[in-house]
């Protein structure tokens, strides 16, 4: 029984990042009527992808990101989201992080935030370019810039919230020396 529970715990832990990204995709679509400042939904899925690629890249394999990205684009609908753009964004973020992993060990949060700022800027610019090219007309980039800025300032809160869950890793055996550490 204990074995089974532990196994279950491992599975849940392994499935958490993918599930969370999927949930955030749904949440992005939910009609939350925030004050007008936040008329455009923040880039929650992108934040989660960045965060987990940084800390648990093995739990978000490239094919899963591809699938989630395609799903996200399909659900958003309309000609303004060509299917595949989000998949491209997610894959780009993942590769940028895995390619520079050696610089990202034990860095401060400010640096992580800076990395998010750069990568999400590239991702937003990419999607703007793709939409503009595919529709072959100039699209007002202001909503996208707005979305970027709002997401940038939400990231510290988001990272802190998810980071709290990260301290608890069942794959590392519970440390009996630390009081209060749970299996």
């Amino acid at each position: 029984m204990g074995d089974f529970l532990q196994q279950l715990d491992r599975w849940l832990y392994a499935a958490l990042p993918g599930t969370l990204v999927a949930f955030l995709i749904l949440l992005t679509l939910a009609p939350v009527r925030l004050p007008e400042v936040l008329a455009v939904a923040p880039l929650l899925p992108l934040m989660a992808v960045y965060h987990f690629c940084l800390f648990r890249a093995e739990a978000l394999p490239a094919w899963l990101l591809f699938g989630l990205g395609i799903l996200f684009d399909l659900l958003q609908g309309g000609p303004g989201t060509p299917v595949g753009v989000s998949a491209l964004q997610f894959l780009l973020v993942r590769q940028a992080i895995l390619g520079n992993q050696k610089y990202l060990v034990e860095v401060s949060f400010t640096f992580i935030w800076f990395g998010y700022a750069v990568l999400s800027a590239v991702a937003v610019a990419l999607s703007w370019c793709a939409v503009s090219l595919l529709m072959w007309r100039f699209i007002d980039p202001q909503p996208a810039v707005f979305q970027y800025v709002v997401s940038l300032f939400l990231y510290p809160i988001f990272g802190w919230l998810i980071g709290r869950g990260r301290g608890r890793d069942p794959l590392n055996a519970p440390d009996p020396r630390v009081p209060g550490s749970r299996p």
Partner: peptide, 15 residues
Amino acid sequence: RVVGDSGSAFVRSML
């Protein structure tokens, strides 16, 4: 009932 927005910066739609 409105159950969804587009959530994208380039699409204005509702579900």
